[in-house]
Design a binder for these strands. Structure first.
Lengths: 109, 109
DNA sequence: TATGAATATTGTAATATTGCGATGAAATAA
DNA sequence: TTATTTCATCGCAATATTACAATATTCATA
């Protein structure tokens, strides 16, 4: 059906899925890495960096922002995007927790 | 087009995107959490745990396995799935690296 | 060998995603 | 005021994802 049965899962599971989904496209990985690299977060030189149409880049940015991976603030005429430390930290903690729980156990596969 | 222009990005970016994509659905988050919880990785009581059809669960398991998030080994008649520490570790490191790089910098948004 | 249990695969349908070009909107500069 | 720049949104087309039921496969066991 192409529609996820989100009501079958917890809010937390749905939120995590959405955050990981934001990182599930190479263009969005590239955007994150570019923001990281340029330090200054004056954006959309992104459009020149990434070989996609401006409208497509804009869409990817929106998805990243919806998921909370990046934040954006208006900077006169342009928009300033930067990474959201808090959300990235949550994701790291989530994966860390999983790793901590399995680290003691014997591998079975 | 619905098709990602993967050739525009590095292999690493594409691989990371695929791994995050494996975690980008609440059912797959739920599967990972269930495997984590039951410790023993004798699976597909998963089908009873997760309110989706057996074929759908099977498909999600395949995606997780393709991305390397879980490993599966044949255990007589049934299949034993468990989490793949190595790949989860890579993902944690990737996010950690990002966080390390931004931790010193001044927030701009 | 035949049956059953556990998965995987296939076919089909609905919906989502990806991408582009064109168009809007909003602030700045000329 | 009139460009120009910067971004968002809309409409469209192509492809991918999600889901289920039905069927196939694979192995163990009766």
């Amino acid at each position: 059906m192409g529609i996820s049965k989100t009501d079958c899962f917890t809010d937390r599971q749905n939120a995590l899925a959405q955050q990981f989904k934001a990182l599930s496209h190479p263009a969005r990985i590239a955007i994150v890495e570019h923001i990281l690299r340029v330090n200054s977060c004056i954006c959309s030189d992104l459009v020149e960096e990434i070989p996609l149409a401006q409208s497509t880049v804009s869409l990817h940015l929106r998805e990243l922002k919806n998921a909370g991976i990046i934040k954006g603030s208006i900077e006169g005429n342009s928009l300033c995007y930067c990474l959201n430390e808090a959300v990235l930290n949550e994701l790291r903690e989530y994966i860390s927790d999983i790793l901590n729980k399995i680290s003691g156990k014997t591998e079975c596969c």
